[in-house]
Design a binder for these strands. Sequence first.
DNA 1: GTTGATTTGTCCGTATGTATA
DNA 2: GTATACATACGGACAAATCAA
Lengths: 250, 250
Amino acid sequence: MIDAGLKSPVTRKSGVALWRQIADQMRQAIGTGVLGADGRLPPEIALSERFGVNRHTVRSAIAALVQEGVLRAEQGRGTFVESRKRLSYPISARTRFSTGLRDQTRDRRSTLLADMVEPASSRVAEALKLTAGADVIRLETLSEADGRPVSRATSWFEAQRFAGFAKAYAKTSSITASFKQFGIDDYFRHSTLVSARHADAADLADLKLSPGAIVLVAVAINVDPEGKPIQFAETRFAADRVELTVSTEA
Amino acid sequence: MIDAGLKSPVTRKSGVALWRQIADQMRQAIGTGVLGADGRLPPEIALSERFGVNRHTVRSAIAALVQEGVLRAEQGRGTFVESRKRLSYPISARTRFSTGLRDQTRDRRSTLLADMVEPASSRVAEALKLTAGADVIRLETLSEADGRPVSRATSWFEAQRFAGFAKAYAKTSSITASFKQFGIDDYFRHSTLVSARHADAADLADLKLSPGAIVLVAVAINVDPEGKPIQFAETRFAADRVELTVSTEA
DNA sequence: GTTGATTTGTCCGTATGTATA
DNA sequence: GTATACATACGGACAAATCAA
């Protein structure tokens, strides 16, 4: 994007209400600093002229963003930006979740939502190089930073090799530390597949997103030093709170 | 995502029309094989019951997906999936666009939409390690595969070092080949930053997307063998047609 | 070849939400 | 706050196309 900024015209009868289109544009413009760079939004009348819509429509958009925590409106003073920086999540051969985000947030927390043993689907079996139907451990986890949900992950591990992994994770809240209990002192990110889609109902609830929000989906395989797959994971990131940095050092 | 499949309830008065929410869910379910795995969709009545809406609402959603080219409806027979595989775009130290996609498509085409010389913004200057305001060449390009737009990129190059780059690109349609004309036989992807957002008006037009669509945004810096930045690029991918594969070989 | 079941396509009317003036 | 226009969503009924018994 060069600087379409706020020029982007809103589209009628697209199935997306004007106020929501404007809210989306404003959220993005605020994020890129095109709008409210000084922490303050132009008056509603000015915005309505820029977008070519009625002032009521802009008010609906602002109300939605206030609800989201992006803006704060004060009667008689104006509308202000609640500044929140986007987290950068690194993807590299040595990626460690906690290490990567440690410097960017004061309060980080990982929660184990659920764990179970199940037969591997063909997708999971292929990734972990197991025979289809072999028992695998599934972990459902949630990561928060400064009180806001950041990512929601589903991980699979070979049940035979990693019996009790869930208990280890529950105690340490760390994949790295849990692997250590199984004699794995080091491991590597083998491959990562990144895509994006609209958040589904589960994402909306877990990550506390509003309908229409976007999730970045990273499907990753981690391997031990011998190159054997030890973890298969699908992580959904709230796209408006996170960006992924891929450092490819040859 | 485990298997929320089609259970996800639709949200009323959220600013997003029911038919669009359903269309989005169906597009995703089709992509993951949860829906229409056999190439055929359940009847409209069955779908309307699963989503808890009127048959007409499901029909609106189907109509949108037919328009997008995802589905094909035949009176009296049923609704069928127009199979189209998602392209995998590789990101690694040696990423070459054409090389990466060569095996996946029959017909690939890159078009130069525009080129100009302009003073570097602070963002561009920082990435290319130039002094702010130094002249840079900007290229606006579009990539298509099998007749469908895949990505839309904006690239910047140091104007002094790469005078005439646009002409070289116009002739070769290849960044790699153009660099060769400036004595650069090899170059590397230094870093890539991946995020996702709703497509803006320009994206909708260039990539032929429908409102509400998602773009994956990759901001990359390429360096020559000496480690000097030679290209700064922001590429917008149509998220429903592309996924990014990050191969991190240690 | 006919009949009936299934499935998509079209039309009616009505209620509610959205956007403008 | 009121009035108006349009898009969205629902419910029902029937037509048109397809397929199998």
